[in-house]
């Protein structure tokens, strides 16, 4: 397969950046999108040009590292990560436009790489539980209803890739924060810090400069882990309840 690529090139955080056009030939339909980029980068290296910087790590769809806004969708067409996106999803000869995530709290570092440490700071603000160190506790020591365990697990599958922010017209991080809050608020282990957690994580989310949620649903429609919008309602509920009843003034 042959493709024309329009890729965002930007030297560093300060420089302006622009689209550059590249042509790739003889691409296997079974290659992942990242493998196609590897081929392109090899060619650029041979030509003595600067290869395109992009984030990637596990290439198994579980780490949340790969990004790229492809043809108007985070992680491209289909609800998947970019490493699990295959070239057969595109038409032969198609022009593919690749941009970095666009959000003020995700500044571009180089080309398609953005700094997502705003998410780390939100997690540091409250996305944890306190446990005693020592020997590992027995599994299933605390009984948890199956539906609750499943809802918590579904929320916990969030890999923090930032596709929700990239997809949202407001660059809102609500789906990410909702998944993290829901995961811990639903389980007994999350109860000690429950109110403090949601208050601090939302405060951090606001401080980072993410937009607000307008319930368009674009985030859940693009989320590679299919995190449900129900988590956002749960976050709103947790936040209001915490603000009204917590003892942190």
């Amino acid at each position: 397969m042959n493709f024309t690529l329009k890729v965002w090139r930007q030297k560093n955080a300060q420089s302006k950046g622009e689209f550059k056009t590249y042509h790739v030939k003889d691409i296997s339909p079974d290659m992942s999108f990242l493998e196609m980029f590897d081929v392109l980068n090899e060619e650029l290296l041979l030509k003595g040009e600067d290869p395109i910087a992009f984030d990637h790590d596990c290439r198994e769809g579980i780490c949340g590292m790969c990004s790229m806004y492809i043809n108007g969708h985070p992680h491209g067409p289909g609800q998947t990560t970019t490493c699990q996106l295959h070239m057969r999803m595109f038409k032969d000869g198609e022009t593919i436009v690749v941009e970095p995530w666009r959000a003020k709290p995700f500044p571009v570092i180089k080309d398609l790489v953005v700094d997502r440490s705003a998410f780390d700071r939100i997690i540091q603000a409250g996305g944890y539980i306190s446990v005693n160190t020592g020997s590992a506790p027995d599994a299933n020591e605390i009984p948890i209803p199956k539906e609750v365990a499943e809802a918590a697990f579904n929320a916990a599958t969030c890999i923090g890739c930032g596709a929700c922010v990239a997809a949202c017209k407001n660059a809102s991080a609500m789906l990410f924060v909702a998944a993290k809050v829901a995961h811990l608020a639903l389980l007994p282990q999350g109860q000690p810090e429950r109110k403090r957690r949601v208050e601090r994580m939302v405060a951090q989310m606001d401080a980072e400069g993410f937009g607000a949620c307008t319930n368009t649903g674009a985030c859940a429609a693009e989320c590679p882990k299919e995190i449900s919008l129900a988590n956002i309602a749960l976050l709103n509920r947790e936040y209001l309840a915490a603000k009204l009843t917590s003892e942190y003034v």
Binding site: Y69, G72, R102, A103, K104, N170, G209, G211, A221
Partner: peptide, 19 residues
Amino acid sequence: FYNRRARPVRYAIVENKST
């Protein structure tokens, strides 16, 4: 105002999955 400020650089192409 917050929402506009959160995305200072717009995308070249956007395909919406919302109403």
